[in-house]
Simulated assay, not measured.
Amino acid sequence: MTKKYQPDIVLDREASAPLHAQISAPIKRAIVEGALRPGTRIENEIALAKRLQVSRFTARQAIQTLVEAGLLQRRRGVGTVVAPQPHLQLIQLPSLHEEIQESGHESTTEILQYNHRRATEAIAKQLGIEAEASVVELERLRRRDGEPVAILYNWLPAALAPSREELETFGLYELLRKNGVAPTSTRQSVGAERPDKREARLLAISMRDPVLTIDRTAFGADGRIVEWGFHIYRADMYRYQSTVVAQS
């Protein structure tokens, strides 16, 4: 039987980065850099938790993050292995600003809010940081050829946040990449709702018109959370596309 890969991990229990992110980061790096070949078996959660002296939940969360990113696969009777074709295209995730421009349209941004604040318990949990840590809270209105297309709410650690002036010209992910903290994967959920009165006014639609919502957490190459966002899109001006790959 092929020996399972045991990642060389040193945990810093005093660091702000959650333990599951400290576990997943070196595995992800080894896959992206090609040190781990497709089909390589990964140490199972029970053995990983025991060896690193963490809870099984923490070990499972670390592995699940990589599964959701398309880098690992769970195979019945085999275990967890490196995916045959890891989704390395996720190394550069486009922002809505870039998507609009690449489709040949003009993209403009209106900054509705740009606030420095202390993280509440809820925000801290979403970002994987300590409560009361300094964060930047954003609310932006994105337009395509002058027509409102989306309201974008984002929260990110203050140390990573671009300036208000930069965000008026460039997309958030584009600026994060320029600052060396490129989002490489996301975890997100998609829904459909009715807008409230203010949202309908900003998007120039009625309260009866449905909107598309996306709740998204973005991760950097080291496994840390880069930003958390909640976006509201006009259903008549935006289509969400995704690719689903069946696990063998």
Rank of each mutant, 00 (worst) to 15 (best):
A49K: 11
R51G: 04
R51K: 12
L52M: 05
Q53A: 11
R56K: 14
T58E: 12
A59S: 15
A59D: 08
R60M: 09
Q61M: 14
A62K: 09
A62T: 09
I63Y: 03
Q64C: 01
T65G: 11
T65W: 00
L66C: 09
E68S: 09
G70R: 10
L71Y: 15
L71M: 13
L72E: 02
Q73D: 15
Q73V: 06
R74C: 00
R74E: 12
R75I: 14
R75K: 13
R75P: 01
R76H: 08
G77H: 09
G77C: 07
G77Q: 12
V78W: 05
V78I: 15
V81A: 07
V82H: 04
V82C: 04
A83D: 08
A83G: 03
Q85W: 01
Q85S: 12
H87I: 06
H87F: 03
L90F: 05
P94Q: 09
L96F: 07
L96G: 08
L96V: 14
L96M: 11
L96R: 06
H97R: 10
E98K: 05
Q101G: 12
E102R: 15
E102N: 15
E102A: 13
S103T: 15
H105P: 02
H105F: 13
E106L: 14
S107K: 07
T108G: 08
T109M: 12
E110M: 04
I111S: 01
N115Q: 14
N115M: 08
H116C: 01
R117W: 00
R118Q: 15
R118Y: 07
R118I: 01
A119V: 06
T120M: 05
T120E: 06
E121L: 04
A122T: 08
A122Y: 00
I123R: 01
A124S: 13
K125H: 11
K125E: 13
Q126N: 10
L127C: 07
L127S: 01
L127P: 00
